[in-house]
């Protein structure tokens, strides 16, 4: 339990996926203009990460069993993409409300590097099933947190008078840099 909690905090705050590993930057820069969209996107990412993490754990066990480490990447990619697709169809059929909330984001996140990142890192670090799930949750919550903070700042930024040179990506990246430095303050919490 202790180690699961530690993994959660590590993935969420200390080594935040977006701000320390730069995973999932495309949605981070693209969707972080409104707080509400950011929150929904975050929820969808947490959900997909859990699905991906669980399936990646299963595949890893099979691949270890048949002793084929070289098939990791290719099977992760295929299985994550198809499991997200399946989940999407499932939600569409059984819970239209949930689908409306998460729906449009699901296909977008399939190719999100953060998802594959979760699968690869949990394999590299040899987490067991529970640890993998708490890692995935931590990463997802961390992603949501970064997205939310960013969107809050960007909503204000819209109203400020910026030079046309700095508008758009340039200033967003600068703000992300400041956020990243802020999150460095969490380092050392793992001990």
């Amino acid at each position: 339990m202790n180690s699961s909690l530690q993994i959660f905090i590590d993935a969420c705050l200390i080594n935040n996926f977006v701000l320390a590993y730069f995973l999932g930057l495309c949605p981070f820069l693209g969707v972080s203009t409104k707080t509400e969209t950011a929150l929904r996107m975050g929820a969808a990412v947490i959900f997909v990460m859990l699905v991906a993490s669980a399936s990646a754990y299963g595949i890893h066990q099979i691949l270890v069993y048949i002793n084929a480490p070289y098939l990791h990447l290719i099977s992760y990619v295929v299985v994550i993409a198809s499991s997200v697709q399946l989940v999407e169809m499932f939600i569409k059929k059984f819970s239209p409300t949930l689908f409306r909330t998460l729906g449009i984001f699901l296909p977008l996140i399939t190719t999100n590097c953060a998802i594959l990142g979760v699968a690869l890192f949990q394999t590299n670090r040899e987490y067991d099933f529970i640890e993998s799930l708490s890692f995935a949750t931590g990463a997802g919550v961390g992603f949501t947190l970064a997205l939310l903070m960013m969107s809050g700042i960007r909503e204000r930024l819209e109203l400020s008078d910026l030079s046309s040179v700095a508008q758009g990506a340039a200033v967003t990246l600068m703000v992300a840099g400041v956020l990243s430095m802020t999150f460095m303050g969490f380092a050392g919490m793992g001990r």
Binding site: F22, A169, V171, L173, M174, A176
Partner: peptide, 12 residues
Amino acid sequence: ILPGGAFFVLGA
């Protein structure tokens, strides 16, 4: 060299 610097350099 830290992550923050990467954002700053790309922004610049």
